[in-house]
Design a protein around this nucleic acid. Structure first.
Lengths: 196, 196
DNA sequence: AAAACAATAGACTGACTGGTCTACTTTAAG
DNA sequence: CTTAAAGTAGACCAGTCAGTCTATTGTTTT
């Protein structure tokens, strides 16, 4: 009943189109066309467009969490260096997509939070999971004496995630990673520093 | 030919609906309905939905710039206090709209930057004008010895704007101003500080 | 082999989209 | 008073939307 190549193809095509155009601007027919699946199959696997959208979010979150673990919980690398690699990966991806795509979760958060509570809850959960990864990494950094956390690890993680998401948004409208670089520079220069 | 109450009503209703639902999710008929204007008038004043959207952006940018000037260029108030008032106003507005609306320019930047270069350029211009207001205020702060700018005023302004926009986005999905508070706290505690 | 079910296939529906069209009313100029 | 233009009014259009429907094909289970 579950896992199927057709279902996967639908989700992958959907993720790509939604990343590029947003949720509302992406029609089901467009998804079907790009992966050559008939409409009957779509409504066999998903009960509605919303159901489909939630599946796209879930799949993306799982995949993304894997790379997040690989980058931020790599105990062979100093915690701050892990963060730098995370930012570098984000910048690289921004180049790859020609500054057009950005972060799927951020995009949908902006577009759908005010539209549907179901979507908002799902996206909020993903953000919270990401913040936890940051918290973990920040605690490591403090334990090793690399930084002094002057608020709470949670507040600092929130600061980093929101700043990064904002930088991605700005990078899209500017078509340049410059805002991402500025964020990273000031973050490491003034926020992620040892106690004075 | 120009200025008209009908045109204004259309733009105001459009701004409200687009703020709440986004651009793609807001139909022209919905705008007409909420302000009781017939379609003939709409296409008398605007050549297309895109033309209308650009007018909404322009109007919003002008209005918002006025409050930005009032807050950030008030020379009777210390520069950092001006910034604090700006953030407080943003938080207050977020409460008023029940964490649903956020920033119109940020929303559209996320939704339309990858979709239309015309929109992207218009939104980018608005962001750049805002950054200039921050630059001005930051220079004042440095001149008065309140802060030490360790990068450039432009980079710091970019950092503040992107961080704030990201915090607004996160506040929407979380339905709480907490991320905005965290951003402000850490910003004033570790970034906007005098030279050591 | 037969029955049951999963999956594929796409024509079709009503509602709605942005946009056009013609007709009418108001305003301003000559 | 006449005439031209600005603005109002809404029926209408082709296209698209998410979603439904019936029919058919594959694959198990019995």
């Amino acid at each position: 009943m579950k896992n199927n190549a057709t279902r996967d193809k639908l989700i992958d095509s959907g993720a790509q189109l939604i990343s590029q155009q947003g949720y509302n601007a992406t029609g089901i027919n467009a998804v079907l066309k790009t992966c050559g699946v008939p409409k009957g199959s779509f409504y066999h696997y998903f009960s509605s467009k919303e159901d489909f959208g939630l599946a796209v979010i879930e799949r993306f979150a799982i995949r993304y969490d894997e790379t997040l673990i690989a980058l931020l919980e790599d105990s062979d690398t100093p915690p701050l260096e892990r963060l730098r690699r995370y930012f570098a990966a984000g910048r690289e991806y921004m180049h790859e997509c020609d500054h057009a795509t950005g972060c799927l979760i951020g995009n949908l958060g902006q577009e759908l939070s005010g539209q549907s509570d179901t979507f908002r809850d799902a996206l909020n959960l993903v953000f919270q999971r990401w913040e936890q990864r940051f918290v973990h990494c920040l605690n490591d950094a403090q334990a090793q004496g690399d930084i002094a956390i002057r608020t709470t690890p949670e507040a600092l993680a929130s600061f980093i995630l929101t700043g990064w998401e904002g930088a991605i948004l700005r990078a899209k409208t500017l078509k340049s990673v410059e805002p991402m670089v500025h964020f990273e520079t000031i973050l490491f220069q003034q926020v992620l520093v040892p106690s004075p």
